[in-house]
Amino acid sequence: MRAIAEGLFTDETPPRLLGGRERETGRVVFPCPAGNACDPVPLAREGRLWSYTVQRYRPKTPPYAGPEAFAPWIVAYVELPGEVIVEARLVDVAFDAVEIGMPVRLVQVPLDPEAAEPLVIPAFAPIAGGRA
């Protein structure tokens, strides 16, 4: 499966997210911006949930490119220690079981699983047996 955009993930297996380190300040951002102000930097695979919400209605299209048939999903902000807090989906957890601080690990999920050639987006999933 192809990523929704170039330059989001590293090429390794399993992949990591590709952030950008600002050359002047050392600040890490995600995604890595185009241009030469930042150097690409692979980000940690594991972190902790910093905050979240559940998207309960279908976002407007454009720009949303997810399936027409909408099922709510979790938007997470995940703190990758010492690097940056990134926004991504949170999967494999019930809405009422989500807890800020829970340990999570990077995965890839299809934006539209029914699509002929699904595009994958960044997501995190709880680490089995992990404790908040």
Binding site: I4, L8, P63, Y64, G66, V75, E87, I100
Partner: peptide, 21 residues
């Protein structure tokens, strides 16, 4: 563009995540 395609150009998401924290 992918940021919008993935469904994140939604102001209510931000406000909700902010108060959740």
């Amino acid at each position: 563009d992918w940021y919008g395609e993935a469904g994140y150009m939604v102001t209510t998401q931000f406000f909700a995540a902010k108060i959740m924290r």
